[in-house]
Structure formats: structure tokens, C-alpha cells
Computed example of a mutant assay.
Amino acid sequence: MENKENILILAKKTILSESQSIAKLADYIDINFAEAIQVLFNSKGRLIVTGIGKSAIIAQKLVATFNSTGTPSLFLHASEAIHGDLGMLQKDDVTICISKSGNSPEIKVLVPLLKRFGNKLIAVTGNMTSFLAKESNYILNTTVDAESCPNNLAPTNSTTAQLVMGDTLAVCLMELRGFTSEDFAKYHPGGALGKKLLLSVKDMLENSMKPMVSPDSSIKKVIFEISEKRLGVTAVVENNKVIGIITDGDIRRMLNERDTFSDLTAIDIMSKNPKTIQSSTMVTDALNILEDFAITQLIVVDDGNYLGVLHLHDILKEGII
């Protein structure tokens, strides 16, 4: 049986080895990187990212990152390019070719074809004297001292370096474009992330109950309204303006303090000046308010008019938290 301590030592050694390879990338950032960024930023076409083997997998991930951060991109498999896929390349496109050695047979075949079209070519390689490096317009150095693999064969540190270099390109382009969270939301409309970025309070109210009583409503009416709407609260409304709020906690306190409540109305037990929010507010901002004041619901009003109640449980159901 393997010694657990040795396993932990090996795991930590691998992590440190890869992290050191990443740290060295900072020393490789030079004028080539800045010029490559300018070419990508000013491009009127798309970004084509290509590679072979493990580098192709990294290329696919980077295409996903570029597309989601405002740089239209396509993946081109280096071996498939010469069998028809090269047809995706258009005259204004910029190409990034990823290859550790820069000398693989597929790369040597593909690069002259790319240059024939006249497109700018950016190399991401760990071999600065390779065929790819010599034939490219810009070279991004991802050299690593060694792989974490015990045999120094399986791509580990090198592919991590490629990934980080690509992410660095994407982040710099985001900054130059002033890419905001609102822009990001446009490309991520689905799932919890999309809801977190796009969902407003108004969207939550469309299928929500709207508990409300008048100031002179009986306590029986108040209890019925809270129970029927199942939000644990009701607004006290006069001329469609919220003048107070009554929670199920207010009802319990009243019952503990009094033997009878037949002479009371809603205005007698309501809390004045409840926390309110506008329907245009993002749900994530509403959630922050709920947390800051340790409450479970907010009264929604626009221009002073009562629209409904946003409850913490509704937010939880949307999977935002």
C-alpha cells in the first residue's frame, strides 16, 4: 500500500511545479504580447484558435472564454483544417496557433496554408526557435522547464501555461473593451449565473402574490390575508400607498400581549416605514438588503405605488444563492 504521506508530498510537488511555471510567464510578457493584443482588439474579423493533441483541448477552452467575454472565436482543429475546415477562415480573421514544440507535422502543414490567406498569426509556443515561432507574426512564449509528469512527457505544466497565457489575452481584451458585468450577462442568460446577472425584482413579481389590507381592516382579515398569500406578511395600503406592514411575528406578539383583539384594526398593530425597493432593482441587490437588515421580505413600490412583496424564499427558489 502506498504511503499516504508520500502521496501528499507528490501532490504538493505537482502543484508547486505548475504554479512556478505559471509565475515565470510574467517574465515572458513583452512587446510581442502588447502588439498581439492590439491586433486582436482592432480586428474586424473573428479569432480562430487552433492546435493539435492536448493543445487543441486548451484551444477549445480558450475559444469558450473568448466568446463569453466579447471576442467572437472559432476552434479549428489543426489536423482537420487540411480536410476542409480551413474554409471557416475569412480574410479579416486573426489566428492563434497553440503548440508546445511548434514543430509537429500538422503544424508544419497548417502554418503555410494560414499564411497563404494573409491572416495575422499569433503563436503560443514553448519553443522559440520552432517552425511555428519563425513563421508567426507574433510569438507568445509559454516555455516551461519541465513537465510535472515523472517521465517529463505528459503535457501538464506546458498546457497549464498555454491556458494561462490565453486567459491573459482574454482579460486584457475585456479591459480594453470596457467589458462589464452587464455585457457578460448577455452571453450567459441561462442557469443560476444568468439569473444572478439579469433577474430584476420586477421579474420576480410577475407570478407573486400581492398581500394587502386597508388600515381599518379587522385583525381577522389581516390573519386571513397573511395565511392566504403565504408570504408571512401583508402590506397595509391606503390609496395604493403603503403606510405600514404586518408580519406573522406582529400577530404572535399581539396575541401574547392581549386576550382579545376584536377592537383592533390593522393600523393599530402595523409597523410604519417598512423597507421598500423599486421593481427595477436587481434581485442580487435586493438580497444584499435582506441580509444587511436581517429581514425576509421587502415591499416593492414604484413612484410610491404598491406592487407586491419580494420574499427571500422566492429568491432561494430561483437558485440564485
Rank of each mutant, 00 (worst) to 15 (best):
I267G: 04
I58G: 06
F261P: 02
S79M: 09
I267C: 13
S262Q: 06
I299L: 10
F66S: 04
S148N: 09
E228D: 08
K115E: 02
M128I: 13
S280G: 06
R46M: 06
A185R: 03
F75N: 01
L169H: 06
T260C: 14
L25Y: 10
G51D: 00
I7C: 04
D263F: 15
I321C: 04
I98P: 00
S130K: 08
M1L: 10
V111T: 08
L40E: 01
E257T: 12
I48V: 15
E147K: 13
E5L: 15
D250M: 09
S79H: 03
D203G: 04
G194Q: 10
G190Q: 06
K108Y: 00
D85P: 09
I98A: 08
G190E: 01
I219Q: 11
K24N: 12
A81W: 13
L114H: 08
V63C: 15
K13D: 01
L169E: 01
G84K: 13
L140Q: 12
S227D: 00
S227Y: 03
D203Y: 02
Y306I: 04
P72I: 00
I57C: 10
G126L: 08
N157S: 15
I57K: 14
L176M: 13
N207S: 09
T143P: 06
L205I: 10
I37P: 13
A36H: 07
I107W: 11
N6F: 11
L199W: 13
P211S: 05
R230K: 15
M204Y: 05
S217K: 12
S271F: 03
D259N: 14
N141Y: 08
N67K: 07
H77Q: 10
G249L: 11
F117E: 02
M270G: 02
G194V: 07
A36R: 08
T168D: 00
D314W: 01
T129A: 11
G87H: 15
T95M: 15
S181C: 06
I31C: 03
T168C: 15
E257P: 00
T247E: 02
F179A: 04
K221G: 08
G87I: 12
V309F: 07
L310R: 12
F33S: 12
S279N: 04
V63R: 11
L173G: 07
S271T: 10
D85W: 11
Y306W: 06
K195T: 03
I7H: 06
L114K: 11
A78Y: 11
H311R: 05
G166Q: 02
Q297G: 14
K91C: 05
S280F: 04
T50I: 07
I98V: 12
N127H: 15
N207A: 05
N42A: 10
L76E: 00
N157K: 11
V39R: 12
K120H: 15
E2W: 11
L76K: 12
D314A: 09
E5Y: 13
N3C: 02
F75C: 09
E318A: 10
P274D: 01
K272I: 12
R253W: 03
V309K: 03
L255P: 03
E18Q: 12
S214I: 00
R46P: 01
V94I: 15
Q90N: 09
E2A: 09
